[in-house]
């Protein structure tokens, strides 16, 4: 899917930040509030989300995302 980007890094980061924000709320914060340490220990199953989001933020910041 081609989504044209603008020359605006912050705008380009919005979808990634929204996804990370929801991950933070629905996974991390809810797991912490739950209090069951086993739920926190399985965080690594969603590590692809963090890795992919991190790399995409770097690419967008450096202006390497597809225009």
């Amino acid at each position: 899917m081609n989504m044209p980007n603008e020359n605006n890094e912050l705008l380009g980061m919005l979808p990634v930040l929204a996804f990370l924000g929801y991950w933070l709320y629905s996974c991390l914060i809810c797991a912490v509030l739950n209090g069951d340490p086993r739920l926190l220990k399985i965080w690594f199953v969603s590590s692809p989300v963090l890795i992919a989001s991190g790399f995409s933020l770097i690419r967008i910041f450096r202006g390497q995302a597809a225009r």
């Binding site: 996804f19 399985i42 969603s46 692809p48």
Partner: peptide
């Protein structure tokens, strides 16, 4: 794959007794 990976953690958290 990214969406599925996200849900692998979210689903167990959201169905836990507290939530």
């Amino acid at each position: 794959f990214l969406a599925m990976s996200f849900d692998l953690w979210m689903d167990p958290v959201q169905v836990s007794p507290m939530w």
